Amino acid sequence: MTRTIFCQKLNKEAEGLAVPPYPGEKGQWIYNNISKEAWEAWQKHQTMLINEKRLNLMEPDTRKYLTEQMDKFFANDEVDQADGYVPTSD
């Protein structure tokens, strides 16, 4: 059975995540407030940032940067794009 939450990113009722995707308070907040659809959109954006900016996930600064970008993404603030990236209209 799926869980429904009010998604802060999409501003609507949507299917919730099955488990918290992060440890600790941040993971619990995401679990309670971010839908599966919004989480998948973040993962796609995060992957694009990692690949296009050639980020090293072993670096603490990289992890901090991605966490900051994730917070902005879920708050519907402007997030970084890859240099020269032109979004497609899906």
Rank of each mutant, 00 (worst) to 15 (best):
K72R: 13
T88L: 12
T2E: 15
T47K: 15
A18S: 15
E25I: 07
N33H: 15
P87S: 01
A18C: 10
D90T: 00
T47W: 00
N32L: 09
V79N: 00
Y22E: 12
K72N: 08
K26A: 09
K26D: 13
N76A: 02
R3T: 14
E68D: 13
T4V: 10
T47I: 00
M1F: 12
L55W: 08
A14K: 14
F73M: 02
F6H: 15
Q28D: 13
C7T: 14
Q69W: 06
M70H: 01
V19G: 01
L66C: 00
E78T: 12
H45E: 10
T47Y: 04
E68L: 08
N51S: 12
Q28M: 12
K12I: 12
K12A: 14
G16C: 07
S89T: 07
K12M: 14
N51Q: 14
F73K: 01
E13W: 11
T4N: 11
N51F: 11
K72I: 03
K36L: 15
I34C: 08
V86E: 10
A75I: 00
N11S: 13
L57Q: 03
D90Q: 04
Q69R: 01
K26W: 13
R3Q: 11
E40Q: 10
E68F: 04
D71A: 06
S89H: 04
G27E: 09
C7R: 09
L10Q: 14
M48S: 14
W29F: 11
E15F: 05
Y85H: 14
Y31Q: 03
